[in-house]
Simulated assay, not measured.
Amino acid sequence: MQISGITISQLALIITGDSNISPYRSRYQLIDFFQEIDSDNADREHLSRREYTECKIKEANGTSNLPIVFRNALDPRNFLETTFELEEVVKKLNVFLEYDKYKIVKIGEFYEVKDNRGMAVELELPFEGSTEISHVFIEEQIQKCERKIREGDFDGAITNARSLLEAVLLYVEKKLSQSPPEYDGKLPKLYTRVQELLNLEPSRKDISQALIQMLQGLTSVVSGLAGVSNMMADRHARKYKPAKHHAVVSVNASKTVADFIFETFSYQLSKGSIGLQTSQTISADEAADPGISKS
């Protein structure tokens, strides 16, 4: 992760507390703050608190340590029993991060930096801020996809792309089916069941040929993602080593289908075309392993 100099300066103000919108840290507290990513205790007494902080951020810039700096700076526990608002800090930093192609997002109770570079598809979920295990799991898969691409873990990103789509499809099926079958790890079969629940079967005769072609295309995308994840992901002993463009297209494909399913689900629900048939939610065990260990 790489950010600009002006963003480094703004982040330093937040960490030191000199921005007046975050808790103040003394020099010793700043040393403790950076201890997790740096065991170097070299004397930097000649530097001011702000100079020291900027120096440490610059050392982390462009490495896997920088997301840790952001995560620790935005830890909600730092703002407990203070008059400062963490949301105000996030909003301010996001103004600068936008120019660096990053964005701070909330995942569960904590915040992470999302990489927007090379990720053309934006998936907006209808349950932002939810703490339900299935919702949190889906949010986590989105962030893992993007983080692993950023870190060069392309086979891992493909695995999470599949996990994301699996979790979304399982969520919708649980909401609409009275007795959903146990997921056997067959992603295309799961997608077909959700298609039927949402009245999206390509075999319908009452929709235009263009829409039929689009629905058939999405079915092919799901089958392709299943195949790619079998060959290139880290779920099994992989047959091919994926490159970045393989990971990006897999993640974007997963987001595209997931977004279409969510939009259709929300639209039909609002119109009364479908109804919630069950109060079931994905269990913690299902969320942790929604069948991805199976072929």
Results as ranks from 00 to 15, higher is better:
I8V: 10
Q10P: 00
L11Y: 03
I14L: 14
G17Y: 03
S19E: 10
N20F: 13
S22R: 03
P23G: 12
Y24S: 05
R25P: 02
S26Y: 01
Q29L: 10
F33T: 06
E36L: 13
I37Y: 04
I37W: 04
I37G: 02
S39C: 07
S39M: 11
A42Y: 12
E45H: 13
R50L: 15
E54V: 02
E54T: 03
I57V: 04
E59I: 09
A60W: 12
G62F: 08
G62E: 11
F70Q: 06
A73E: 14
P76F: 06
R77V: 07
N78E: 15
N78Q: 14
N78P: 00
T82Y: 10
E85Q: 13
V90K: 08
L93A: 07
F96W: 13
Y99K: 15
D100E: 12
Y102L: 10
K103S: 09
V105N: 05
I107M: 09
E109Y: 12
E112L: 09
G118M: 04
A120H: 15
L123N: 07
P126M: 05
E128N: 10
E128A: 14
G129Y: 05
I138A: 08
E139T: 03
I142V: 09
Q143E: 14
K148L: 15
R150I: 00
F154Q: 05
T159Q: 15
N160A: 15
A161S: 15
S163F: 04
L164E: 05
L164W: 03
L165Q: 04
L165I: 02
E166C: 01
L169Q: 02
L169K: 02
Y171D: 14
V172G: 02
V172L: 02
K175C: 05
Q178Y: 07
L190C: 04
Q195F: 03
Q195L: 09
L197T: 01
L200E: 07
I207V: 12
S208K: 11
Q209F: 12
L211W: 05
I212P: 01
M214E: 13
M214P: 00
M214Q: 13
G217V: 04
S223I: 00
L225Y: 09
V228N: 05
S229F: 03
A233F: 01
H236Y: 15
A237Q: 15
A237G: 11
K241I: 13
A243N: 12
K244F: 02
K244Q: 11
S254Q: 09
T256I: 11
I261A: 06
E263S: 10
Y267F: 12
Q268E: 03
Q268V: 01
Q268P: 06
I274L: 01
T278P: 00
Q280A: 13
T281N: 13
I282W: 08
A284G: 06
A288M: 13
P290W: 01
G291W: 01
G291M: 00
G291H: 00
K294C: 10
S295M: 09
